[in-house]
């Protein structure tokens, strides 16, 4: 792809993770609200990407991303206990053991790790296109146009 289209709007995995499991409002309501939000985001990603990857394909990609996330979290000193966070079924149980700030860091790292792994395989441009249906709250003007307009 030519330079121009790359430079325009391409959020990083971290920015995207932030949109998916944002902290602001939910943080003040404790880890449960945060977890609930993460579960919804996970479900949306799962539904969207399973079409393309198959649900087994999605799950194995997620599992790989969780392993990578744990390695990143070691740097934060959060590695023990993160095993509890590896799948959504366990998030709820794990929530009680963490404060909201910590839960947020862990969840954020997990989603960022997943997106970054996906982008490693297929590039961020296509990756973003594929997950777009799972990102309901991106204002359309922000995401779409600069790229396509520039090309026309």
């Amino acid at each position: 792809m030519e330079e121009g289209s790359r430079q325009s709007f391409q959020p990083t995995p971290e920015e995207l993770a932030h949109r998916l499991v944002g902290y602001e409002a939910e943080g003040s309501r404790g880890p449960e609200a945060l977890i609930a939000k993460a579960e919804k985001a996970f479900d949306r990603l799962h539904t969207t990407l399973s079409v393309f990857l198959g649900s087994k394909g999605f799950e194995s990609l997620w599992a790989r991303a969780m392993l990578l996330a744990q390695q990143t979290l070691q740097a934060e000193g959060l590695e023990e206990g993160t095993a509890l966070f590896t799948s959504p079924e366990r998030w709820a149980d794990a929530a009680g053991t963490r404060d909201a700030a910590q839960a947020h860091i862990i969840l954020h790292a997990q989603f960022a790790s997943f997106l970054s792994l996906l982008f490693t395989f297929i590039g961020e441009e296509i990756g973003l296109r594929l997950i777009r249906p799972a990102l309901p709250d991106i204002p359309p003007h922000e995401e779409d146009s600069p790229t396509e307009d520039a090309r026309l």
């Binding site: 399973s50 079409v51 198959g54 590039g123």
Partner: peptide, 29 residues
């Protein structure tokens, strides 16, 4: 599918902007 996309995007004819709009990948395995 992940590999197909990874490989095929190397080709000149591949238009990333068509993925998800004009071209949909669906796994049936």
């Amino acid at each position: 599918p992940l590999k197909i996309l990874r490989h095929q995007q190397q080709m000149d004819f591949f238009e990333s902007s068509m993925v998800g709009d004009s071209i949909h990948f669906i796994d049936l395995s």
